[in-house]
Amino acid sequence: MIRFALRRILAAIPIGLLVTLGVFALVFAMPGDPLRELAGDKPVPPSVLAAERAQFHLDRPLLVQYGLYLKDIVTGHFGETFDGRDIGEQLRLRIPVTVKLALLANAFQFTAGMLFGSYAGFRRNGAVDRLLMLATLFVLAVPFLVLAFAAQYLFGVQLKWFPVSGTADGFPMSYLLPAMVIGLLSFAGLARVLRTSIVETVNSDFVKTARAKGIGEQRVLWRHILPNALLPVITFIGIDLAGIFAGAVLTESIFNLPGLGQFLFQAIQLKEGGVVVLLSTLAFISFIVINLIVDLLYGVLDPRVRSG
């Protein structure tokens, strides 16, 4: 198991380097001089500009810049943002925001997905099943931005049930609305995976065997159907959790939550290469770690994977 984990991590390193380099190259290629834009109309003495360029490695070619940023990350010298904020401090403040949002959104997604998915699976072609089909289509058709702004306007501005934006009301109040929007947009996928899986499992031979053993329906459900039906769901949740960061960029920006996603959004706007490389590295690491955990968990729950 440890060897498996190590192998996976080692294999991930070159991919991670490529991905973060790609992201950085895109930022690098954006037109304009970030420092001059930051200064606005104020005239900046060329000597100051040059010093700052050197501080942020902006005077170097692309690959050297990237290498220097990586070195800063590996040695833990995160440094400052262009506007002088300590990056380490920013991470400390922002990581909890994103984690809270992610956990809450997943709680919504998970609860709704499991409830609807299992209900639809056991009552195939019933009302809930059809409703779920509609919901899936709806979610596919409506872009995230539209739903997010609509929810913000309706429940925040008009009904005033939730704060419109910001974290002034703390956890969980400030996080509820954005988490529900994310949850609403992703529960249907989970529900469908679970539904399909249950439908397949219920008709499988070993469930027939279990019934032929004369054990009660409850026991058939909990000991035989669910442990098998939930396997694909674990993979789905893993992929989903790993994608949280991508969702966080949009959500945190719309609802003005000071998390990592918003940080990344700002950094891209300002062409802050160092921060972009740092955050995409973080995102990639969390992606790899979550996937690894899911795979290990899967191995524990499904003996066929373990010995294969």
Partner: peptide, 10 residues
């Protein structure tokens, strides 16, 4: 079919 007739995760 004893492979499909036994619960694979028990």
């Amino acid at each position: 079919d004893s492979l499909s007739a036994l619960n694979p995760v028990q």
